[in-house]
Amino acid sequence: MAEDGARHALKIPPGFWETTATRHTPLEDVQGIATGIAVAALGVAMLGHLGFLTGGTAGLAFIVTYATGWNFGLVFFFVNLPFFALAIGRMGRAFTIKTILAIAAMSVLTGLQPHVLQFGPVDPLYGAVLAGMLLGLGLLALFRHRASLGGVGILALFVQDRFGWRAGLMQLAFDLTILALSFAVVAPRAVIYSVASAIVLNLLLAVNHRRDRYVAM
Results as ranks from 00 to 15, higher is better:
Pro14Gln: 02
Gly15Lys: 03
Thr19Asn: 09
Thr20Asp: 13
Thr22Pro: 00
His24Ala: 11
Val30Tyr: 09
Val30His: 04
Val30Lys: 03
Gly32Met: 09
Thr35Gly: 15
Met46Phe: 10
Met46His: 00
Met46Tyr: 04
Leu47Tyr: 05
Gly51Ile: 02
Gly51Glu: 01
Phe52Glu: 00
Thr54Ser: 10
Gly55Asp: 08
Thr57Phe: 06
Thr57Ala: 11
Thr57Val: 14
Phe62Asn: 02
Ala67Tyr: 07
Gly69Val: 05
Gly73Ala: 03
Leu74Gly: 07
Phe77Gly: 06
Phe78Ser: 06
Asn80Thr: 12
Pro82His: 11
Phe83Pro: 01
Ala85Gln: 05
Arg90Ser: 09
Arg90Asn: 09
Ala94His: 14
Phe95Gly: 10
Thr96His: 12
Ala102His: 13
Ala104Ser: 10
Ala105Ile: 08
Ala105Gln: 04
Gly111Trp: 05
Gly111Ser: 10
Gly111Cys: 04
Gly111Pro: 00
His115Trp: 13
Asp123Pro: 00
Tyr126Val: 15
Val129Ile: 15
Met133Trp: 11
Gly136Glu: 07
Leu140Phe: 11
Ala141Trp: 14
Ala141Tyr: 11
Phe143Arg: 06
Phe143Gly: 06
Ser148Gly: 07
Val152Met: 14
Gly153Pro: 07
Gly153Ser: 15
Ile154Met: 12
Arg162Phe: 04
Trp165Gly: 02
Arg166Glu: 08
Leu169Tyr: 14
Ala180Ser: 15
Val186Trp: 01
Arg189Phe: 09
Val191Arg: 08
Val191Tyr: 03
Ile192Pro: 00
Tyr193Gln: 07
Ile199Asn: 10
Asn202Trp: 08
Leu204Cys: 07
Ala206Tyr: 12
Val207Lys: 14
Arg211Glu: 11
Asp212Tyr: 11
Tyr214Val: 09
Val215Met: 15
